[in-house]
Amino acid sequence: MSQTVDRALSILPLLARGPADLGRVADALGVHKSTALRLLRTLHEHGLVHRQRDQRYRLGARLFALAQEAVEHLDVREIAHPHLVQLNERTGHTVHLAVHEEGEVLYIDKVDSRYPVRMYSRIGRPVAITVAAVAKLLLADLPEPERHALAAKLDYPMYTPRSIPDAAAFLKELATVREQGWATDLGGHEESINCVAAPIRGVDGRVVAAMSLSAPNVVVTAEELLALLPLVRRTADAITRDYCGTTPEEDTA
Rank of each mutant, 00 (worst) to 15 (best):
R77L: 13
M1D: 05
L226T: 09
D237Q: 10
V196I: 12
E144P: 10
G188Y: 00
R41Q: 11
G30V: 01
I108M: 02
P126K: 07
A65Y: 04
H93P: 09
L97C: 01
L150R: 04
S163V: 08
L186R: 08
P157K: 06
L39E: 06
H73F: 04
S113W: 06
K110T: 09
S2P: 08
T94D: 13
P82F: 00
G187R: 04
V25I: 09
R178A: 06
S113C: 10
A175N: 08
G187K: 01
L29E: 03
D6W: 12
V127A: 02
Q55W: 15
E69G: 01
T184E: 09
H44G: 13
A128K: 14
A151R: 06
Q3F: 14
I164V: 06
R58V: 13
T235L: 00
R58P: 11
R147L: 07
L228I: 02
T184D: 13
A168F: 06
D155S: 14
R147N: 12
P13S: 14
T235V: 09
A210W: 03
F64K: 05
A67D: 15
A222N: 11
S212T: 00
L186N: 09
D21N: 10
E102N: 15
V203C: 11
N88R: 15
R51Q: 15
T176G: 08
I108Q: 02
I129Q: 12
D141Q: 08
R90D: 15
D185E: 07
L12F: 12
T235C: 04
L226A: 06
A198T: 02
L14F: 09
G47N: 03
L37C: 06
I164K: 03
A16I: 11
I164H: 05
Q180Y: 05
R147I: 05
M158T: 07
I239V: 15
D185R: 00
P161A: 04
A151N: 00
R233W: 04
R162E: 10
L174K: 05
H100Q: 04
S2R: 12
T252M: 05
V127D: 11
G92Y: 05
E69Y: 00
V99R: 06
D109Y: 04
L226K: 14
L74R: 15
E224W: 07
R178G: 09
H46T: 09
D185V: 14
T176C: 08
V131A: 14
I11F: 14
V76F: 11
T246K: 12
L29T: 01
L40S: 07
L84Y: 00
E144W: 06
E190L: 15
D6T: 09
R56Y: 11
E45N: 11
A8F: 03
A149E: 10
K110N: 13
D75R: 00
E250A: 07
R7Y: 01
L138M: 07
V85Q: 08
P116R: 10
L87K: 02
E190Y: 14
A222W: 09
F170N: 02
D112I: 06
A70M: 05
L43Y: 02
I200D: 08
L171I: 07
A36F: 12
H81P: 07
W182K: 06
D204R: 11
K172A: 13
V85N: 03
I129A: 11
G92M: 12
W182M: 03
R241A: 11
N88Q: 12
